[in-house]
């Protein structure tokens, strides 16, 4: 075998090994994307799907985010809706109360700058962008207190913006909801 032959055969070997690796890499990547698509469609786990807008300079005057409508409400079908707003530097309500093992819809927005809601120990995590409504579906499997910090820089007081979520027994929540109105930790 001449030197020329060795050279060209080594080029072929190199190219073949390289091609195999590239194919493996492409398979890994397509696998990941398919997995995400499957989980998104089949288990309905995906980021917020819809875009809804609201005017932050008028939310305190009318619409679903007026003060009297903030807090938790038991819907006719047994689900719970929580409405909250973030503003420099607190959430309203500062302590959210919800029942355990219940499908909950969190609807929230910001009254001023960009904030975020994160409930520690869960994967509830959403941005609050003024002008837009954030919606998250959640369900708590355990009763107890959860910390709910603002997770986005909202100016100097950001480090002090911590809310709370109190997850209570289903019957207790139903009992409190009987009197109507919007529930929060206040009065408990």
């Amino acid at each position: 075998m001449s030197a020329e032959d060795t050279h060209s055969s080594s080029v072929e070997v190199a190219a073949r090994v390289e091609r195999r690796w590239a194919i493996i890499a492409v398979i890994i990547i397509s696998g990941m994307a398919l997995l995400a698509a499957f989980a998104g469609i089949h288990q309905a786990t995906m980021p917020q799907p819809r875009v809804e807008t609201t005017d932050p300079s008028r939310i305190h005057l009318s619409g679903e985010f007026v003060e009297s409508n903030l807090g938790s409400v038991l819907e006719a079908n047994g689900n719970v809706t929580v409405r909250a707003i973030g503003q420099q530097y607190s959430f309203t309500p500062a302590c959210i109360v919800v029942p355990v093992d219940t499908p909950i819809t969190l609807r929230a927005t910001s009254a001023d700058v960009v904030h975020g809601i994160l409930i520690q120990g869960t994967n509830v995590n959403t941005m609050l962008v003024p002008g837009y409504i954030s919606e998250q579906l959640m369900r708590f499997g355990k009763t107890g207190d959860y910390l709910m910090p603002c997770q986005e820089f909202c100016s100097f007081g950001h480090e002090g913006m911590w809310g709370k979520v109190k997850v209570i027994d289903k019957a207790e929540f139903a009992n409190r909801a009987k009197s109507g109105g919007r529930l929060s930790c206040v009065g408990q």
Binding site: A37, G40, M46, R50, M127, S134
Partner: peptide, 19 residues
């Protein structure tokens, strides 16, 4: 991904491109 101003479709497209 956690922002309210973009729909789920474009979020998925960008996720796949990121892969």
């Amino acid at each position: 991904f956690a922002d309210p101003q973009v729909g789920a479709g474009f979020k998925f497209i960008h996720s796949a491109f990121t892969a």
